[in-house]
């Protein structure tokens, strides 16, 4: 918490930390940055979270830069430090893809690598103390742009923004649909949706089963991108929230501050596990979903 012109309440502090830096179309038609959460809300769909885009692209480029650097100089001889690390990650991904993905598709392994590294780096932003970058952003906003620092929003963990997680999971969902159509054909895809799990030789029974099957399978189909993104979002949002709550303790006395420091350290250590695990789960499920999209049933039930 920082000492600003007027003291802010805990609720305001939390809300400030949970509001994105938003650029969008105001209800009156002009485009601009939202000054508070209410304005951001009024923009509806025609808005963009600048901080989410900025940090996700920054982390993504960081990943691509280092990996590309390693890939450009990749040699079959003795690898250097960076190449060693990159190869280690790639072999790890490759092992996972080989384990879960049975068909042949050159897209899946690079996709898995991108997901794993990108999600990991986005999650990693969570380990930076929650106030550092928002504080810097507030100072920059105040002194360079003459803004009220309370109206400078900077959420640095893109994976706590459902837009980011849904953006990825919907992209994976789109790939799933595309490859399902490609491998099974439109008929095969809908057959999978409607002739499963209940089937019968009896035509009448089969007709009754079709809508039931469709409901069941459609729900499970839709649940895939939903659960994929909500799992990551929920974990990261909760983790971020706990960091924010711990940060509130720094407003208390010395004992509170000490306890807050210890708690933050402890939670950060635990969080290292969570961010890696979430990145891994996201990747593994994406691979599994892609594998499902490539599986052509040998027999029609």
């Amino acid at each position: 918490m920082s000492s600003e012109q007027h003291a802010i309440t805990s609720a305001e502090y939390i809300r400030h930390h949970l509001t994105n830096w938003t650029y969008g179309k105001f209800p009156d038609g002009h485009w601009g940055f939202a000054h508070d959460a209410a304005q951001a809300k009024s923009m509806g769909f025609m808005a963009i979270h600048v901080d989410t885009m900025l940090w996700s692209i920054a982390t993504g480029l960081l990943f691509l830069f280092f990996f590309h650097q390693a890939a450009r100089k990749a040699t079959a001889g003795i690898p250097g430090g960076l190449q060693n690390f990159v190869e280690w990650v790639c072999e790890f991904i490759d092992t996972n893809v080989r384990g879960s993905f049975t068909a042949r598709n050159d897209l899946v392994a690079p996709m898995a690598l991108t997901i794993f590294m990108w999600v990991f780096l986005m999650n990693f932003m969570d380990l930076l103390p929650v106030d550092w970058i928002p504080l810097i952003a507030g100072q920059v906003g105040e002194h360079a742009y003459n803004m009220d620092p309370h109206h400078v929003f900077m959420k640095i963990v893109p994976s706590t923004d459902p837009n980011a997680t849904f953006g990825m999971s919907l992209a994976i969902f789109a790939l799933m649909i595309v490859y399902s159509f490609k491998n099974k054909g439109v008929a095969g895809f809908f057959a999978e949706l409607t002739l499963h799990p209940f089937s019968s030789k009896n035509t009448l029974l089969q007709i009754i089963f079709v809508p039931i099957n469709f409901v069941l399978e459609f729900v499970s189909l839709i649940a895939k991108p939903l659960s994929l993104s909500l799992r990551l979002y929920g974990n990261m949002y909760a983790g971020e929230m706990i960091f924010i709550l711990i940060a509130l303790m720094f407003g208390g006395g010395f004992i509170m501050q000490l306890a807050g420091g210890l708690l933050q350290w402890g939670w950060a250590v635990f969080h290292i596990l969570i961010i890696t695990l979430q990145a891994f789960i996201f990747m593994t499920l994406a691979i599994v979903y892609m594998d499902m999209a490539h599986q052509v049933p040998h027999e029609q039930h």
Binding site: M46, I48, H49, M53, H68, W118, N163, A164, G167, A171
Partner: peptide, 19 residues
């Protein structure tokens, strides 16, 4: 949910393509 969703999807595809 807003335009960020689409932006993120596009970014994701671009990153996959580059990788």
């Amino acid at each position: 949910i807003n335009l960020t969703l689409i932006g993120q999807s596009i970014t994701f595809f671009l990153f996959i393509w580059f990788t």
